[in-house]
Amino acid sequence: MDAEATRDFALRLMREVWIPFADDQVPRFYNRDVVGHHREQLLTYDDVIARLSSDHGRFSGSNYHIEDIIAAPDKFAIRFRFTATVNATGQPISTEVIYFYHLARSRIAEFWLLADFPFDYRAA
């Protein structure tokens, strides 16, 4: 993938997977052997699906405001502000999120997440 194709991939990832919390779209974007890193968590493909499934019920009124995407062949970084309401408490949240992605075989092979909100990929 060249840088422009990588940027398009990043935008499609947000539109088709994260904004709608569409765990059924994960196979189109993530390699089955993906490795993720968030705080102490070492994450897997199944953890990404669990996160999306959990977030679908955990948050309402979610909004992703993309601040920046930096793309190169087979890697990109995306920075956005995520706002939503936590359904269990009714409390609003607002956090800046930064992901770094490496691609292999035209899908995500590895990623790192930096956020000041403790997103839990393994929450049920």
Rank of each mutant, 00 (worst) to 15 (best):
S60Q: 14
H56R: 12
V26I: 10
E110C: 06
V17N: 06
L113Q: 09
T95A: 12
L114A: 15
F117G: 14
D68N: 14
D74L: 12
F119E: 01
R122P: 00
L113V: 02
A124C: 05
A3L: 06
Y99I: 01
M1R: 03
G61P: 07
A10I: 03
F29C: 00
G57K: 08
R7Q: 12
E110K: 11
Y101D: 08
I66T: 15
Q25L: 07
A88Y: 04
D2I: 00
F100G: 12
V86S: 08
A5W: 02
V34I: 09
I49S: 02
W18F: 15
K75F: 05
R28H: 14
F117N: 14
T6S: 07
D46V: 07
T6A: 04
R107A: 08
I49D: 01
A71Y: 03
F119I: 07
I66F: 11
K75R: 15
G90P: 10
I98H: 07
E4K: 15
A71R: 12
H102C: 01
H56F: 10
I19L: 15
N63T: 11
N31V: 00
S106G: 09
I70F: 12
N63M: 13
L113F: 11
Q91T: 06
D33G: 07
Y101A: 08
R58N: 02
L103N: 03
A10S: 14
A124D: 04
I69H: 10
A77L: 11
G36L: 03
D2W: 02
I108K: 11
R39Y: 04
R105A: 15
Y45S: 01
D68E: 15
I70S: 04
W112T: 01
D24E: 13
S62G: 07
G57E: 12
V34Q: 09
E110I: 02
H37N: 10
L43H: 05
T95M: 03
R39S: 12
A124G: 10
R12K: 15
A50I: 00
D120R: 10
R15S: 15
R81C: 09
A77Q: 10
R12P: 03
M14L: 08
P20V: 13
D33R: 06
Y101N: 13
L42Y: 08
H65R: 11
S54K: 06
L52R: 05
A104D: 10
H102G: 01
N87V: 13
D116G: 15
R122T: 01
I66H: 11
F111L: 10
R122Y: 00
F29N: 03
I49M: 00
L43S: 05
